[in-house]
Design a protein around this nucleic acid. Sequence first.
DNA 1: TTGTAGGCGTTATCAC
DNA 2: GTGATAACGCCTACAA
Lengths: 341, 341
Amino acid sequence: MAGPVTLSDVAREAGVSLATASRAINGSPTRTVGPELRARVLAAAERLRYSPDANAQAMARGRTTSVGLVVHDIADPYFSTIARGITHAAGRAGLQVILASTEQDPTREVEIVGLLRRQRARAIVIAGSRYDDPALTTGLRDALDEYLASGGTAAVVGQPVLGTDTVHAANAKGARALARALHARGYRDVAVLGGPAHPLTARERREGFVSELAALGAPVPDERVLFCGFDHEGGREAMTRVLASGSRPQLVFAVNDLVALGALAAVRAAGLVVPDDLALSGFDDITTLRDVVPGLTTVRIPLEHMGAEAMRLVLEPGGGAPRVVEVATETVLRDSTPALV
Amino acid sequence: MAGPVTLSDVAREAGVSLATASRAINGSPTRTVGPELRARVLAAAERLRYSPDANAQAMARGRTTSVGLVVHDIADPYFSTIARGITHAAGRAGLQVILASTEQDPTREVEIVGLLRRQRARAIVIAGSRYDDPALTTGLRDALDEYLASGGTAAVVGQPVLGTDTVHAANAKGARALARALHARGYRDVAVLGGPAHPLTARERREGFVSELAALGAPVPDERVLFCGFDHEGGREAMTRVLASGSRPQLVFAVNDLVALGALAAVRAAGLVVPDDLALSGFDDITTLRDVVPGLTTVRIPLEHMGAEAMRLVLEPGGGAPRVVEVATETVLRDSTPALV
DNA sequence: TTGTAGGCGTTATCAC
DNA sequence: GTGATAACGCCTACAA
């Protein structure tokens, strides 16, 4: 008797029609069921341990109850925090979250959107920086267009370059504010661990920081702006390069906290100490790092909130032009960048 | 023409039967399609931008292509790292991951399993400590039994108390080894931030550590073993209690890294310094914390691997008695617990 | 209020 | 190799 219990089984057991059983169990927008029959059906369902088949329901109703979430790496605190905001909002809306990871390969976003389209996901949230790469952008846009044409909605947590609704952190502004704050603390001689060239998030932060410093009369020489991986290893490697070049900046700005962490490792490996020998700043204000010693100066981004906002965009009507929600950042000065005397 | 393109549309466009179109596009275990017709069908599908409906396929085939992942909090590095192992393995197996969070409420695991059953998830991985609580355990076991009866497989990353396949970290052993190592470094006067009473993971670590220390002739007084939340805030609060009581242990052992981090915050707030005034140890060896200063002594658990193992258990036959995969830990001594002179 | 029957998009079982 | 035609499990006009 392991065979799955279907609604017909329940109907038969309760001595009612399939339709009545359906209405009693899953409700009906129009019809209603008499209390007595309803009770009989519910009892039968309980007795048979009936569990409605969500797939069948989805097919019959013409829409699923799942939303797709695309991340580059769910183990990265940046994405996992956004994911928390999303799962929470999804839960409240009675929706399932299908989690898909590109595993750091932006080209996979296209495949994943296709996958999510096949799943008939009701909505898709793509978390993660957009790229300064026309091929990537148009490829993804095409995939999204096909998805949207099939009736879904989509939002991006990143930059508004796909024509979709977008939640956009004020990276450039945040980086500028940080630059001003650090300049005010006396830093002049700085190096930038700038992340990869193409992700716009890295670029916004990098260029925002550099240009503001230039405006303040403390330009960063080009050779002091390094490109590197957007993660711990990238930071470690780039910082190693900086130190190997024999230069020792007063301050190192890393485009996110993980890069800063990698830089910290390299600094330690070189026998130097933050902030005594070198000041260090990150970006994101990852939760896990908020109480380490020395406190890491950074720019706070409300990641969880951004995830929730993306869900809101994707679930609410929307209508006209793509909506862009700008999210403010907050400069967080800590011990890793003490004021210079 | 926004209406979804179906396989019949493709068949008509290609001038073949529905059956042939299906076989050409999604293959068939038995029948095969002539090269010419196949080409026609594929061309038609391409032209129409056809995307097979995974839900319909699932229904027709009698099985879905999705696996459920249950976590307490996806933003917690512990779970997000496990999640990475799972999504990676799932991707390789061509499966979707449905991510569900209990939001720290163990009773919600039951609902979620029910939800996943409705989705006809092919497998479920429950990540997170099991509880020393018969009601919780039997409740979940019942839900799982119903799920398993409907043909799915399930595995737990935690303790083998549900009768399911389980990936179990050697928490007790790891805690014992850590205790020995720290004892060898000269620590005698220790306090334990023991996490909550009921989660077995906290208990295994707490009791393993305490009992080993006792065996070494350095018993921890009961009042020095504090219960607390299993997260940052729990550690902060408990450490504050310790310090407020006027006692100042040589060493504080926290049952996981987040608790240790919270403790660190409290220690700093009290104007003390780790490790000068107080040594500190955690558990898990969360990636993000590996390069902070001072390095946090901890016990490494191969979280990502454990996720992958859980997926393996859940996808491979299995057959007989519940399988239990014991995963070894590794003591990681860092600067937060220097050898006492 | 309840039941009948057609349809959702695919796969799979049959014949041809 | 190809094509009708039942399922699959449920919802929903429509009819009673």
